[in-house]
Design a protein around this nucleic acid. Structure first.
Lengths: 197, 197
DNA sequence: TGATGTATACCGACCAGTGAATATACTCAA
DNA sequence: TTGAGTATATTCACTGGTCGGTATACATCA
């Protein structure tokens, strides 16, 4: 029976992620991250060149799991295209009801780094949002919607989702997420109509 | 000929506002605000009990002018209800193209204060967003849309707008604001349809 | 023995907030 | 009208604490 082989670097990113997501990157010190990981600050700086490096690593680990959830929620929801999109928003609303939920880590980090557009974490955030938009576009196209309409619709659905992330966080009221889901469904149906007509 | 009688307090809020909006509240020190205002830090603390006080004052001064712009843009745009809503988004897109534009100060501040829900600045941000939503709802109702549908539509338009604030800031691409305007117009027309049907 | 990883202890910069003294402007009695 | 007294407004210099990051030495293992 071998020891649990959790690589140190992963553990550090995980500890940092919890703190960064929970309190915001500027509100969390490297000392706090080291404490949380049960490690000296010097060790932290052995594995990451700087705080900025650690922030970037934190966001990069969040990209894939996030999109995987969308895929699963979409697949699991019964019904037509609009219903399946609503399913994603319903699951997001459910997540948002958890007290530890603090919105979208990508969006919040990008707000904190607003004047550093070249920061690797900003690039990670942009890439993530673009991947989400592209995934929606592909889904719509596979459902028979023309490419151009699919891309437009995907962009608008993502806008609704990000708006809901911000507003739900502000008001601490997950029902805004369901209002966003309803709006997304209306846009999907409107696009389907346009496709037929 | 009297001297220009600009009250000190106002000047301090203005200087603070420029820095807070431009760089974020956590990134700006009280020393920086004092310097910007051409005043000693001690003077700053004579007029404001704490940095939190100053942050709250900054947001409170931004509430009314912001809504006034919406009213003007809406009134100035020719066309039906959907077109007039699109007019607001077009003006927002135009603003967003200015290099000093940094999204919505209310939303960005609320992200930086995510763990202080009782902070006066958070209350100001919530109040502002609610007033915007309510204004849209009144406009829709005056245009003949039923109260319940108006409230739902207003909420969804605000979601699109806030999503666009976040996404335009992330990608530094104002065309997302126009995509949001298009989505809003589609929702307006869909609601009008539903009203007639 | 040399590469990898961790610990102790520290640094200079910055930051929110303050103590004590001073300057300015207003009030009111002589 | 003037001068003393008072409230307002501002300055200089400072503090205790935190922050990102580091110099150095010690441990472990191939």
């Amino acid at each position: 029976m071998s020891n649990t082989p959790i690589p140190t670097r992963e553990r550090l990113i995980e500890a940092a992620g919890k703190l960064f997501y929970g309190e915001g990157i500027r509100a969390v010190s490297m000392d706090a991250v080291a404490d949380k990981a049960g490690v000296t600050k010097r060790t932290l700086y052995y594995h990451f060149r700087s705080k900025d490096d650690l922030i970037a690593a934190y966001l990069e680990t969040r990209d894939q799991p996030n999109l995987a959830l969308f895929r699963r929620w979409f697949a699991e929801t019964e019904g037509g295209l609009a219903e399946k999109v609503v399913g994603i928003f319903r699951h997001l609303a459910q997540s948002a009801r958890h007290p530890k939920w603090k919105g979208c880590g990508f969006l919040r980090t990008s707000v904190e780094l607003v004047n550093l557009p070249g920061h690797p974490a900003m690039k990670a955030a942009r890439a993530h949002k673009q991947r989400a938009e592209q995934w929606f576009a592909e889904v719509f196209e596979e459902a028979g919607i023309a490419r151009e309409l699919s891309q437009q619709l995907a962009r608008q659905v993502v806008l609704l989702m990000d708006g809901a992330f911000a507003v739900v966080l502000l008001h601490r009221d997950a029902s805004y997420m369901e209002a966003a889901g309803d709006a997304a469904a209306r846009l999907v149906r409107d696009t389907e109509q346009r496709q037929l007509g």
